[in-house]
């Protein structure tokens, strides 16, 4: 399970970085979202991967670590707010600068 999990995160981050480097506003936002998903899953896995482990002590043989779940919640909320902000900023920059390139001008080939 760990290997599958790690490969999944790796693919997500790779795609995210690729999209980030496209330097157009919409792919950049998508890339940031993918990276933040991968990071959230990574935090989640830091409580160790296990199935059937209840987060309450005494209800099963092993218990799941509740703290990463709390951290992930915080990270999701913050990440969501930041993504929303980036989208609004991207729209405004599009309106004011007139291009969706992150440098505010079309690259000269």
């Amino acid at each position: 399970m760990e290997a599958l999990f790690a490969i999944t995160l790796g693919i997500m981050v790779t795609s995210g970085v690729y999209l980030l480097l496209r330097a157009r506003v919409f792919p950049v936002v998508m890339g940031l979202t993918l990276i933040s998903y991968a990071v959230n899953l990574f935090i989640f896995s830091m409580g160790r991967l296990a199935t059937g482990a209840v987060a309450v002590v005494g209800h099963s043989e092993r218990y799941g670590d509740p703290l990463p779940q709390a951290l992930v919640l915080t990270a999701i909320v913050i990440g969501f707010a930041m993504t929303a902000f980036t989208v609004v900023l991207a729209l405004r920059s599009m309106g004011e600068v007139g291009t969706d390139h992150v440098d505010g001008q079309e690259p000269t080939e």
Binding site: L20, V25, V39, I78, S93, E96, V97, V102, G104
Partner: peptide, 22 residues
């Protein structure tokens, strides 16, 4: 427009930084 341009760089870079912090 100057602010929007500089702001976009600043925001995107810091978002990546936040991911690394996490």
């Amino acid at each position: 427009p100057g602010r929007a341009r500089a702001g976009l760089h600043y925001v995107v870079l810091n978002l990546v930084g936040s991911s690394l912090f996490l």
